[in-house]
Design a protein around this nucleic acid. Structure first.
Length: 497
RNA sequence: GGGCCGUUAGCUCAGUCGGUAGAGCUGCUGACUCUUAAUCAGUAGGUCGGAGGUUCGAGUCCUCCACGGCCCA
């Protein structure tokens, strides 16, 4: 067999070995059943000493990918990695296995998937192991694994071939387990409070609910363009109109924008809506939810992110947009934020290119984003966003220049955005008209007029508050991941030529 | 879109001043019945991301392109 194959070509050699397996019978059997995972084995026997194991031998059936292999003549050790994320060492001996099996084993490769059965014992150095008397090759691996000691380091390969990353890097597996746990906790938190989980359209005739550029697709039979949703917001509020007074959705949004360590074209958003509540209720709810999730996922309310400690345990700071600007810009006087001319002058000093279409509210928010946002480390609610930049939020009763809205910032990034909903259909219609005017003036991110949504509002949306939470960014914080790609199993990359 | 950095064996990485390609792991052959980065001996393995250019000579210098990373917009 090997003399007809280039032995330096590992792929060809393994293909030849697979060919021999095909000759010998079924090369891809699916009749082996296991009864124990590596983690179960550890949990069950970690406190049992060698003598006790010998006196009362336990039989186990395990299966997994062979990650290491040490052949020493007529005895060998190997580690099998299974779905529990842990490894079990197996001890194979020629005189314990059935005739010929040990010789077969010596022709198997690291990366192959094996099934093994035998008795649990401890080696001289104390490692829990299985002395196998049954050993089978279940799946031949044709490609060599990355290097056993350094593992897989190449970032591009880790993203493009995530399965290798998951196999070789335990921290990657842990990150995605933490992601799943985060989503699970958020879901349970909301369900426990009477929220109903729903699914709304991913393909929308009018992309609404956020300020962003959409992806366009086409429906052939209907002969119409559709947009991948940039947010589920307007559909969820239609459901509240319909009497589903507490709803949420955890699902993908799509935004046709740049790719960065903070942005992926598709990302996961939690949105939830609660009738008979306002934005302050949601700030309280969010604080409770984040505190609980941080404790459960990171193990502490104090989360270390990229060397900085983020404290989810203490009450989250709350300040208005204007207060935060004044706090972080001691040279700016309060009056300078009260007129378009003066605020534009401040923006100019900060080298913000002010566009002629901007009103005072937009200028304030630009100043905020440039000078405040990145400095908000510990969880901080920023409130009172200008109405101008909040086309779906309810105006503040005392100051209609701003809305009853907040954004939550952690580690300098926007993590959540919530507000008391605008439920005045006529005001909403007017806000849509202003958005359309901005779109006509060249702003590709401005909203479309959604007549059907206005109609829904005309039936009456109860006083409601709603919020969106960026799940990917939350998971980044909880797993100390510097890039959004580290918390997406298959992040967007250009296709290789 | 701009700047900087990277791309060399299956993997992890060296490669000096421009002088004809290196290591470890992996693989292959052999030895070895408690190893765990097993050990020991021997050995194979390269379109140096791609295309052009400069040069007697390019992994190395220049240009363009592709992909990736970080920062900025």
């Amino acid at each position: 067999m090997t003399d007809t194959v280039d032995t330096h070509d590992q792929l060809a050699l393994r293909r030849a070995r697979l060919g021999a397996l095909r000759e010998a019978g079924n090369a891809f059997p699916n009749d082996f059943r296991r009864d124990t995972l590596a983690a179960d084995l550890r949990a069950r026997f970690q406190d049992v000493d060698a003598e006790a194991l010998e006196g009362d031998p336990a039989r186990v059936r395990i299966a997994g990918r062979m990650m290491t292999r040490r052949v020493m003549g007529k005895a060998s050790f190997a580690h099998l990695l299974d779905g529990s994320g842990e490894r079990v060492q197996i001890y194979a001996r020629a005189d314990v296995l059935p005739e010929g099996v040990y010789e077969d084993f010596k022709r198997w490769d690291v990366g192959d998937i094996l099934g093994a059965a035998g008795t649990v014992f401890r080696t001289r150095t104390g490692e829990l192991s299985v002395k196998v008397d049954e050993l089978r090759l279940l799946t031949k691996s044709l490609r060599p694994l990355p290097e056993k000691w350094h593992g897989l380091a190449d970032t591009e390969t880790r993203y493009r071939q995530r399965y290798l990353d998951l196999m070789m890097n335990e921290s990657t597996r842990k990150t995605f387990e933490a992601r799943a746990r985060t989503v699970e906790l958020v879901r349970r938190f909301l369900v426990d409070r009477g929220f109903l989980e729903v699914e709304t359209p991913m393909m929308q005739a009018i992309p609404g609910g956020a300020v962003a550029r959409p992806f366009v697709t086409h429906h052939n039979a209907l002969g119409m363009d559709l947009y991948l949703r940039i947010a589920p917001e307007l559909y969820l509020k239609r459901l509240v109109v319909g009497g589903l007074e507490r709803v949420f959705e955890i699902n993908r949004n799509f935004r046709n924008e740049g790719v960065s360590t903070q942005h992926n074209p598709e990302f996961t958003m939690l949105e939830f809506y609660q009738a008979y509540a306002d934005y302050r209720d949601l700030m309280d709810l969010t604080e409770e939810m984040f505190r609980g999730v941080a404790q459960a996922v990171a193990g502490s309310p104090r989360v270390v992110y990229q060397g900085e400690t983020l404290d989810f345990g203490k009450p989250f700071a709350r300040m208005t947009v204007k207060e935060s600007i004044l706090h972080y810009n001691p040279g700016v006087k309060p009056q300078e934020l009260e007129s378009l001319d003066l605020a534009s002058a401040v923006a100019g000093r900060l080298e913000i290119p002010v566009k002629p279409t901007w009103g005072l509210g937009k200028v304030q928010v630009e100043i905020f984003e440039k000078t405040v946002e990145h400095r908000l480390q510990d969880p901080t609610f920023v409130t009172a966003y200008p109405t101008e930049v909040s086309p779906l939020a309810r105006r503040n009763d005392a100051d209609p220049f701003v809305t009853d809205r907040f954004e939550l910032f952690i580690a300098g990034r926007e993590i959540a955005n919530g507000f008391s909903e605008l439920n005045d259909a006529e005001d909403q219609a007017e806000r849509f008209r202003r958005q359309v005017a901005e779109r006509d003036a060249g702003d590709l991110e401005a909203m479309y007029y959604d007549e059907d949504y206005v109609t829904a509002l005309e039936y009456g949306l109860p006083p409601t508050a709603g919020e969106g939470v960026g799940i990917d960014r939350l998971v980044m914080l909880l797993t100390d991941s510097p890039s959004i790609r580290d918390v997406l199993l298959f992040p967007h990359l250009r296709s290789k030529a």
